[in-house]
Design a binder for these strands. Structure first.
Length: 774
DNA sequence: GACCTGCTGCGGGATG
């Protein structure tokens, strides 16, 4: 099966192109030394992103976003003109302002190390020093930069934060000559706490140097340029120059494979999020996993692949199954686990095996290998269970098929419960199969989810208030509001909310006020600021280090099953726990013959509105996608016939036993809003994938209630948030008053308009009983 | 039934 997907792999330098780089207008305006470097590289022409980016960046006045797929030369698209501009500037200006000339901000230390190597090569001949600054860089190198700032500085957002806190008075010198800020992997920041921190840091740098500094952003292919532009330059997104490498066609070979498992692995979460069912550990019932592992082993052995699983637990389970198949076949293992809880050494070893072409290797991984260092191209991508988002799947697919015009290969494995006469109606719909197909359809059409950017980010605002106070040794409320809110990065926070936030911070002793009204850190605030964990905007769980023979192999969160003598599967191997040191937070392991996968904790995933709507369209259509194998086709046809039999074309409310099922066919934010609305009317509501389960009511009663709600005026999101539970999520949410926490939660978790549209639709559709259909 | 990311300054002792 073949489909085409936008890519830019056709932009390749070939011998058929004569070395006529100087025929390019963009090449002509680069500095001569940069031209020489391009020539020495053997490049015969600039690639599309580079050709388009040189002029606007070199001109110097504008913000620019460069969106292109991995390995399309977008890094050079930024650095060739930036380095040229810095060289021209150095030649034409006699009174050189000291300081860093270009700042490169990256979400990953590994990317900084990669870029450092590449840029050093370019800048060697240009007389431009390159420095790096992140947690693994020696403090001696950092103090050298502070003493003698110059050239290009590669840094993480957290390390920029540390500059504000610890070197507040040196910043004017450090950044006085700053001409460009480059943000790499922009898409990874949009809509996150870390993104709010980055926006604040960019703004605060401009406040220090008292002028606008052009922002150059690099990103993976973007579905939504406007959101990205508004993120890069808030409220002035329309003025951002947008550069997109026009994508050529690359062939995708695609198959969706369907399997059946014995036990329905369903977990029901109530609206209050309290009673999640425990997942089963019983391996004997998991013959779908064995079948999937057997197919992976048979198909992928001897080649290089990335096998994406959605959870770290599944990474461990599948790596173990694949290793056992290798042992049975008496071959050396070539399947390696890779996820965020494995030690840096183990992860680097796996990355090394993938890069090394001499022996085949496949990584079973989470999103750790979606972004980041260049591991080269692999032969194929496997995705175990439904992908969570279109953008993520696109990014994963970009890792395959870049070798000399080869096709990208994608295999998706889904698994649905075997049908019995007690199978619940939701399981009859085969939601995992339809979610996978919906995401593939959107991918093939080039439709991506819109990132959600409506949050207040009050937790990160607390961090930034403390950071500004540390930077200046104190600040008054007016200055803080002007620097951070007002026309600043937290413009969505009004004066009333800001004042309430300062009051809440005072109540927790984060802040105190001196006689002249100056805000200073309180005793607790001082402790928070001075601890090294202050620089991150995101929350991190407490974990225990796993040690074997003195070597750290990774870390796990603590739970009751972590006791001496217990068995564990980790890093694709089997272990027995020897000792647990609660004070040092260290677990000693020894190799064992059996084990069980560890539990990891995590928040809930969120399915986008566009994905759910596409799923419904697939159920309603009569087309069966051609990329389904026989197993997936069976599941697809079962799901569609259940959709028709249960009457989803006309109804959205269904009686089932003593409960009622409600199908909004909308994204998780709307489903959560409806769940909380119903819970506020004293109903017990569970979120269950596609459906809301409303307990102890009848279809007619619920339908009447929904019709009444749809006719009433909408509540405010804040009023609705007051009745929700489990609202604290972000790092400093614990310091918020009830009122502020409600506001933060309302902005994050609700879509009142979407929910009321849906309630109106439900009110106009007849309720039904499905019991008879089973 | 989720994934990922990141982190200072200082003092004391050894070494060249």
């Amino acid at each position: 099966m073949t489909n085409s997907l936008p890519s830019d792999s056709d932009l390749r330098f070939g011998p058929e192109h004569a070395p006529r780089a100087n025929a390019s207008a963009a090449f002509d305006i680069l500095h001569q030394k940069v031209q020489r470097w391009v020539y020495a590289k053997g490049w015969t022409r600039l690639r599309e992103a580079q050709e388009k980016a040189v002029e606007p960046i070199l001109a110097g006045g504008r913000d620019v976003i460069i969106a292109a797929a991995t390995a399309s030369g977008k890094t050079e698209a930024a650095w060739l003109p930036i380095c040229s501009a810095l060289l021209f500037g150095a030649e034409h200006r006699r009174d050189q302002v000291p300081g860093v000339k270009a700042l490169y901000i990256s979400p990953l230390k590994a990317l900084i190390n990669d870029q450092y190597m590449r840029l050093t090569g370019l800048c060697e001949d240009l007389d431009l020093p390159v420095h790096r600054w992140h947690g693994d860089v020696a403090s001696s190198q950092k103090s050298r930069v502070v003493r003698n700032p110059d050239g290009i500085l590669l840094i993480t957002p957290e390390s920029v934060e540390s500059l504000f806190v610890n070197h507040g008075s040196s910043l004017a010198t450090l950044f006085g000559g700053l001409q460009y800020i480059v943000v790499d992997e922009l898409h990874s920041f949009i809509g996150t706490e870390r993104g709010a921190q980055l926006q604040s840091l960019l703004h605060r740098i401009e406040l220090v140097v008292r002028r606008r500094v052009p922002r150059i952003a690099l990103s993976a292919t973007l579905g939504d340029f406007s959101t990205a532009a508004d993120f890069l330059r808030p409220r002035k997104g329309a003025e951002v120059e947008r550069i997109k490498a026009v994508d050529g066609d690359v062939e995708i070979k695609l198959v969706l494979k369907g399997y059946k498992c014995a036990e329905p692995s369903r977990a029901t979460n109530t609206a209050t999020g309290s009673d999640a069912a425990a997942p089963r550990d019983d391996e004997s019932s998991e013959y779908d996993k064995a079948a999937i592992a057997a197919h992976l082993f048979q198909t992928l052995r001897g080649t290089d692949n990335l096998i994406f699983a959605n959870t770290r637990r599944d990474v461990e389970i599948y790596t173990d199954l694949l290793n056992r198949l290798c042992a049975e076949a008496r071959v050396a293992t070539e399947f390696f686990a890779h996820h965020g809880n494995l030690s840096k050494e183990i992860r680097e070893h796996v990355e090394g095996r993938l890069k090394d072409g001499s022996s085949p290797a496949s990584a079973v991984c989470t999103s750790t290998l979606e972004m980041g260092i260049d591991i080269g191209s692999v032969d194929s991508i496997a995705q175990i269970r439904a992908p969570a988002s279109v953008a993520g799947l696109r990014q994963r697919l970009g890792r395959s098929g870049r070798r000399d015009g080869k096709s990208a290969i994608l295999r998706i494995y889904v698994s649905e419960p075997e049908l019995t006469n007690s199978t619940p109606p939701v399981d009859l719909l085969r939601a995992e199969t339809f979610q996978s197909a919906a995401i593939v359809e959107m991918l093939l059409q080039g439709r991506y989810e819109h990132p959600y950017v409506g949050e207040l980010h009050l937790s990160t605002l607390i961090q930034q208030i403390l950071s500004v106070i540390a930077q200046h040794g104190g600040a008054d409320a007016q200055q803080l509001y002007g620097a951070l809110c007002g026309h600043g990065p937290f413009a969505q926070v009004d004066r009333y909310t800001f004042t309430a936030l300062l009051r809440a911070m005072g109540q927790h002793d984060l802040l105190t006020q001196d006689g002249r009204g100056m805000l200073l850190p309180g005793i607790h605030g001082e402790r928070v600021i001075n601890h090294y964990t202050f620089y991150t905007a995101f929350q991190t769980p407490v974990e225990y280090r796993l040690v074997s023979n003195g070597q750290t192999i990774g870390s796990v969160p603590v739970d009751q099953s972590i006791l001496p003598g217990a068995l564990l599967i980790f890093a694709g191997r089997r272990w027995k726990i020897l000792n647990v040191d609660d004070r040092q937070k260290v677990i000693d392991l020894t190799q064992a013959g059996a084990g069980r996968p560890p539990k990891f904790f995590g928040g809930g995933g969120e399915v986008a509105d566009e994905v759910r709507r596409t799923m419904r369209a697939l159920y309603s259509s009569d087309v069966v996608p051609r990329y389904l194998d026989n197993g997936a086709q069976d599941l697809f046809i079962e799901g569609r016939s259940a959709f028709q039999r249960q009457g989803h074309a006309h109804s959205m409310i269904f009686g089932w036993g003593g409960d009622v099922l409600l199908f909004p066919w909308r994204g998780d934010r709307i489903m959560n809003t409806i769940a909380v609305v119903l819970a506020s009317r004293d109903l017990e509501v569970g979120l269950d994938g596609l459906a809301l389960t409303v307990h102890r009511t009848r279809p007619d009663d619920l339908h009447r209630l929904v019709a009444r709600l749809a006719g009433e005026s909408k509540p405010t999101a804040e009023a609705l948030a007051a009745v929700a539970d489990g609202k604290a999520r972000d790092k400093y949410d614990g310091y918020l008053s009830d009122e502020l926490l409600d506001r933060a939660y309302a902005a994050r978790a609700f879509d009142i308009d979407g929910a009321w549209d849906t309630l109106t639709m439900i009110a106009s559709s007849p309720p039904r009983a499905v019991d008879a259909e089973l």
